[in-house]
């Protein structure tokens, strides 16, 4: 139990996917201008991440590794993620139309979100077992959600600022991201410190 909690804390705060590992920067910068869209994107990514990790872990362990096919990993994983996102969209449209209206527009974006491919590959690369891999994916997704939420808040403050013309838009957003990333650096060692592992 302690291990899972430490893993969760580590993936959410210490090695945050966006702010420490630079995965999923495009949606982080692109979809964080409004709070509700940031939440929608963050939730969709979390759901897809957990499902995709479950699927790719099983495929990797039972189909790729036993036959020495791990060089096909990138190809298979991205196909699985693309298929999963399609499937999720169809299912949601049919059975949960309200949720589909809220999250639907973010789903097509997720296939090319490198956080999803990156986390699924890291989960098998680090040799995690099935349950830890799922917790790892959940933590990464929640970390993404947290970064999106915080950053949407930071950006709403930027809206009313007087910024030099050359820095308006993307440059200023990136420098704000730099400050948020610096704040997250303060978490390094927290998980190890609490659980002394």
């Amino acid at each position: 139990m302690e291990f899972y909690f430490a893993l969760l804390l580590d993936t959410i705060l210490v090695s945050n996917v966006v702010l420490a590992q630079f995965m999923g920067i495009c949606p982080f910068l692109g979809v964080s201008r409004k709070l509700d869209s940031a939440v929608g994107m963050g939730c969709s990514v979390t759901v897809v991440l957990v499902l995709a990790t479950a699927a790719t872990w099983v495929i990797n362990t039972y189909f790729l590794l036993p036959y020495g096919l791990d060089y096909l990993r990138t190809l298979i994983f991205i196909l699985v993620i693309a298929a999963l996102v399609q499937l999720l969209e169809i299912t949601m449209k049919k059975y949960l139309p309200a949720l589909h209206r809220a999250l639907g527009i973010y789903l097509p974006l997720i296939t090319t979100n490198c956080a999803v491919l990156g986390v699924t590959i890291s989960a098998v690369d680090e040799g995690l077992d099935f349950l830890p891999a799922l917790v790892f994916a959940l933590g990464s997704g929640l970390g993404f959600l947290l970064a999106m939420l915080l950053f949407a808040g930071v950006r709403s403050k930027l809206e009313n600022c007087d910024i030099p013309p050359a820095f308006r838009g993307m440059p200023c957003t990136l420098i704000a991201a730099s400050l948020v990333a610096m704040a997250f650096m303060g978490f390094s060692g927290v998980a190890d410190g609490i659980f002394s592992i």
């Binding site: 820095f167 993307m170 420098i175 730099s178 990333a181 997250f184």
Partner: peptide
């Protein structure tokens, strides 16, 4: 070399190009 530096340098580069 750390994450904040990456965002900062990238932001400044785009600002220079924008200028």
């Amino acid at each position: 070399l750390l994450a904040p530096g990456g965002f900062f340098v990238f932001g400044c580069m785009i600002a220079v190009v924008n200028f």
